[in-house]
């Protein structure tokens, strides 16, 4: 017997909060840093500046919220793609906290950043697999594919300063859309 229940909204709200807080704090850091030029200076330069405390706080808080928000995806009644997505995003969230707490010149910072990137991309792929399997969530799956391809294009087209921003904006959009999707989706529990 399968019992369908609308739930898991709290976890979805955490995801939305993670994306929103990070974006707001990043905008705050950019506005507070007069010497930082959009599209010319790297995000690392912003993080190392006096205004970097806002950005690093945003990274740390959003990482924690993302990790907690992904818990709801792991226990979902037998969807391997969604479970993988949840686990990968949880790891990504935890690693974001490391990125925030370790200094830019620390090897742990660089390693954590690379792992965040890898786990996040793998989470996107797992999410796309889950969405297209059994035609579950076509719009969200197509958004995932569109953002992935556009991000690859940005890497080919722009320098590091610009494509970093494109990647960050794409990630924020995806996490927010995922949160909204989680609010609309019922949580399915299987009873034996």
């Amino acid at each position: 017997m399968i019992c369908e229940k609308k739930g898991g909204g709290a976890f979805a709200v955490l995801s939305i909060l993670a994306a929103s807080l990070f974006f707001v704090l990043m905008i705050l850091a950019i506005a507070d840093a007069p010497g930082w030029v959009f599209g010319e200076d790297l995000i690392e330069a912003l993080a190392a500046s006096d205004s970097g405390v806002y950005l690093r706080s945003g990274i740390a808080i959003s990482g924690i919220l993302l990790a907690f928000g992904s818990i709801g995806m792991i226990f979902n009644g037998g969807r391997p793609g969604r479970t993988a997505e949840g686990v990968l995003l949880m790891i990504s969230g935890i690693l974001l906290v490391w990125v925030a707490f370790f200094e830019n010149d620390d090897p742990i910072h660089d390693a954590a950043l690379i792992l965040v990137f890898m786990t996040f991309v793998l989470a996107l792929i797992a999410s796309a697999y889950d969405d297209f399997a059994e035609n579950r969530s076509m719009m969200f799956g197509s958004l995932t594919v569109l953002l992935l391809v556009a991000s690859i294009g940005a890497y080919a087209a722009y320098g590091p300063a610009m494509y970093q921003v494109v990647w960050i904006v794409a990630a924020v959009i995806w996490v927010m859309a995922r949160g909204v999707k989680g609010l609309c989706e019922p949580t399915i529990y299987k009873r034996k």
Binding site: V149, I152, G153
Partner: peptide, 23 residues
């Protein structure tokens, strides 16, 4: 299949965005 059609639509749009960014 339906999933492939949606995937192709997203791929076409994403490639268009990428090609435009590439100028």
């Amino acid at each position: 299949s339906w999933g492939v059609v949606v995937f192709m639509a997203a791929l076409a749009t994403g490639v268009t965005v990428a090609v435009t960014m590439f100028e």
